[in-house]
Design a binder for these strands. Structure first.
Lengths: 359, 359
DNA sequence: GGGACAAATGAAACCGGTTACATATGAATG
DNA sequence: CATTCATATGTAACCGGTTTCATTTGTCCC
């Protein structure tokens, strides 16, 4: 009984926007309607600028909104409209230096369009991705940007059935079920090798990334196609480095055991190039005097090494921002027609590939 | 009329979980209730494990849930319960190498507790922060981790009024209104200077960060307190570097114009140390032979320079994961009692401070 | 004058959950 | 035996929006 009375008072207080401890009570659309002397439907029409509303009425409503400091509740909107203004970015690991810039690109665009970004680290593990997707589905996420590597055909189809727009970064377009954004990995690799050749290299090795990744594969292919007709070419010039710094370091040592006469190395990504640089330093091999070194990706780290690393730069930020743009467009227009965007890469020649003494 | 009939059929189809294009229809709690032959309240009780439910009944409900592949709708839950299982991480810029690791710490813990993380880049601009906070409030965010620098006293109080739990990283505890996590900046600075002295330095400069930041201020103070009693000490040994790579590079050149006899530099963060290293290389000054160099933060980049950089490492990942833990605890227990966590820093001695020839 | 149609508005259903309250049963207690 | 209490369940209100549909009014045209 006592409790009932208390509850009753609490309700009165809520309605009057009074609270003992100074806590703010959010006004609801019904409060606005009451104050403006109209129905909630009309307020909703004013808010969403749809349907017919008389000018005078609109003014009254706007005044009430201002007076109550009213902000529509996004969760209620989400429930009613099944759109939450939230997108998810699933990537392997935000701590991998490749991704922060991309994430920034995504977030900037999302923010500009009034969307919010949920960050998910998959560690490239299928079960983590799945559990994220489950959770995101429950939360009525509007769309997903997928920069992780273990997304399967089945997953894409499932997303499609669930009507969740999807944009994928750097994946093979397996029967092109969703929009894909990637860059010219093959062409970039050829660019890198050509650059090394132009700088006077006579025997070029390649440190490659995980071949499950389409990017790593394409880059390896680009290398192979560029050098296979040279007499010095041999498969043992290609060594795995797992896209990691330590992998690059180890790979370079392995290379120099087999081929001490290498004078150029093309690394499948910048992290491995950094590792390679370290390894070469430990071996007492000078860069670029003895060996020219070039990476791939164009991450910021390439500017802080000594010497600065040449690289084939992808437009990382743009990949993120474009992904967000494409996704939001898909969300808002509802058009699902998948597209493929292939972005250009650019050779960034720095000290690590400076021309050695003219031959 | 025709439309009405179509709608009617659509509803029937919905109820029967049939859809023409293979699109999946999510079952609702009412579907489960109907199938199990109980009320929605009972289903809800089973889901939330609260209230009394008979074992037999529970089984029936669970079976129905499994049969329908039912997943409770998080948005509806959020609306009803005012908890969305979402926290926000507001930081200046995820592309700044300091933050990805912290973000990873936050996300890992959040994920473990079933929470989702929204990423916000404030660029340290007050208006961006405010607009984020507005948006987050509307979305019934459960709590915020604030690693940005422009959070004012007023904002904290407003959050409090709005009942949004808050954990702040690296901020001064201005009348301790929320939990704060920081590390021993002052002590770390003293550690750095002592290390340089032990390594034989006789004249140590300091490149400092923006003095609006409590962290930068404390580190500067630590430097000053450690060296002010030396005869060689003079204020012009302290030069600003804005916590940025280019700032460190410029600062080091400025320093060497005024004090060519410097033999040790303590940088207020690692980015500036990287810039300083670059600057010293350009000046032809050898590290560590001519000048010993140490940074602060312990970001990964310090391991890829040549020579590797000594630094005072903060437990960056732990700062993030602890922040998430504290925040989620606050959210779930509702206890608002603010606490201060000061984490220990550790000296990481690498090649950039290797002892020069014994005096 | 009456039908068609655009403009304006409100009542009520709906989105999919949670929960306060009412009710019913059976066991334990005085 | 009446009372109390733990167990079990359902009804309906509620969270705060959107949207369908009905209704009213006014204008235009034949």
């Amino acid at each position: 009984m006592m409790i009932r009375i208390i509850c009753f008072f609490a309700k009165i207080c809520n309605r009057l926007h009074i609270k003992g401890d100074g806590e703010e009570i959010m006004a609801t659309i019904r409060d606005v309607a009451k104050l403006a002397g109209v129905s909630v439907a009309t307020v909703s029409r004013v808010l969403n600028k749809n349907g017919y509303v008389n000018n005078k009425t609109e003014e009254k409503v706007l005044k009430a909104i201002a007076q109550l400091n009213y902000e529509p509740n996004a969760v209620a909107r989400g429930l009613a409209g099944k759109q939450t203004g939230t997108i998810a970015l699933i990537l392997p690991d935000i701590a991998n230096p490749f991704f922060p810039e991309m994430a920034r690109g995504v977030e900037d665009v999302a923010q500009a369009y009034g969307y919010t970004v949920i960050l998910c680290n998959s560690d490239d593990q299928g079960h983590k991705e799945k559990s994220y997707i489950e959770m995101l589905k429950k939360k009525y996420i509007d769309g997903i940007i997928f920069a992780s590597n273990t997304l399967g055909q089945a997953d894409v189809e499932q997303m499609r059935r669930n009507n969740i727009p999807l944009v994928v970064l750097d994946r093979a377009p397996t029967r092109q079920l969703c929009s894909v954004i990637r860059s010219q990995n093959y062409e970039g690799a050829r660019l890198a090798v050509r650059h090394l050749l132009e700088m006077g290299c006579r025997k070029i090795a390649h440190i490659y990334g995980p071949q499950e990744l389409i990017t790593a594969k394409k880059r390896l292919l680009g290398y192979e196609e560029s050098v296979k007709h040279f007499p010095w070419y041999t498969p043992s010039l290609m060594v795995p480095g797992h896209f990691r710094v330590d992998g690059g370091l180890r790979a370079v040592k392995e290379l120099f055991e087999k081929h001490p006469d290498i004078d150029g190395i093309f690394c499948g990504n910048d992290l491995m190039a950094i590792g390679a640089l370290k390894g070469l330093y430990q071996l007492g091999v000078r860069v670029p005097e003895d060996v020219a070194l070039i990476g791939f990706d164009g991450i910021g780290l390439t500017e802080i090494t000594q010497p600065e690393l040449s690289t084939v730069a992808q437009p990382i930020y743009e990949m993120g921002s474009l992904a967000a743009k494409v996704l939001i467009e898909t969300i808002e227009t509802g058009v699902t027609e998948p597209r493929l965007y292939e972005l250009e890469v650019a050779l960034v020649a720095r000290d690590s590939t400076k021309r050695r003494t003219e031959a």
